[in-house]
């Protein structure tokens, strides 16, 4: 397999594998039959830290719109709502994560996959995703700082 790209978050080097596609809300999408397996990128996982709670608001088979709220996550450092990366249908959730979300941290690009999504949407290449991370890194830090004030 070709070597992963890398995005530097301070001292941490977030690997961005080139065998899959990406969405701007920091998930990877790896083709799997006529669907994509979707999971958090190393960038997301790095910001989240240890995940200990994951919950989905919708049932498998639900059609979703891009940026529709679909679930919640809580980690040692953060809480977040989760949003669909693109228009499509979420056909299956990774059930094992609901009992133990540890694989999100230990195997984020593999066993830590979140759900399978069927979508026709145009996605980002690894190069485009890394470019986006680079372009937005300053803004992202500022946004994260700013959001501490916002409800």
């Amino acid at each position: 397999m070709t070597e992963a790209l890398v995005f530097s978050m301070g001292k941490y080097q977030a690997p961005i594998p080139v065998d899959r596609l990406y969405a701007p809300n920091h998930v990877w999408l790896k083709p799997d039959g006529d669907t994509y397996r979707v999971g958090f990128t190393a960038y997301s996982v790095r910001l989240l830290n240890d995940v200990y709670f994951l919950e989905w608001d919708i049932e498998p088979g639900t059609s979703v719109r891009e940026r529709q709220e679909i679930g919640q996550i809580e980690s040692s450092k953060a809480v977040a709502s989760l949003y669909a990366p693109a228009d499509g249908v979420i056909v299956e959730f990774n059930q094992s994560l609901l009992d133990d979300p540890t694989p999100i941290n230990t195997s984020g690009y593999d066993a830590g996959w979140l759900y399978r999504l069927k979508t026709e949407a145009e996605l980002l290449t690894p190069q485009q995703y890394v470019r986006m991370l680079e372009d937005r890194w300053e803004d992202t830090q500022r946004m994260l700082k700013g959001q501490i004030n916002e409800p």
């Binding site: 701007p24 809300n25 940026r67 994260l144 959001q147 004030n149």
Partner: peptide, 26 residues
């Protein structure tokens, strides 16, 4: 809770990363 006047949830112990994952801004 943050809008309903909860203490600390906003400036709280945990950072809300929702916007990173696609939430619209406040």
């Amino acid at each position: 809770p943050a809008i309903a006047g909860a203490e600390g949830e906003v400036a709280g112990l945990k950072i809300d990363l929702s916007r990173l994952f696609g939430a619209p801004s406040a």
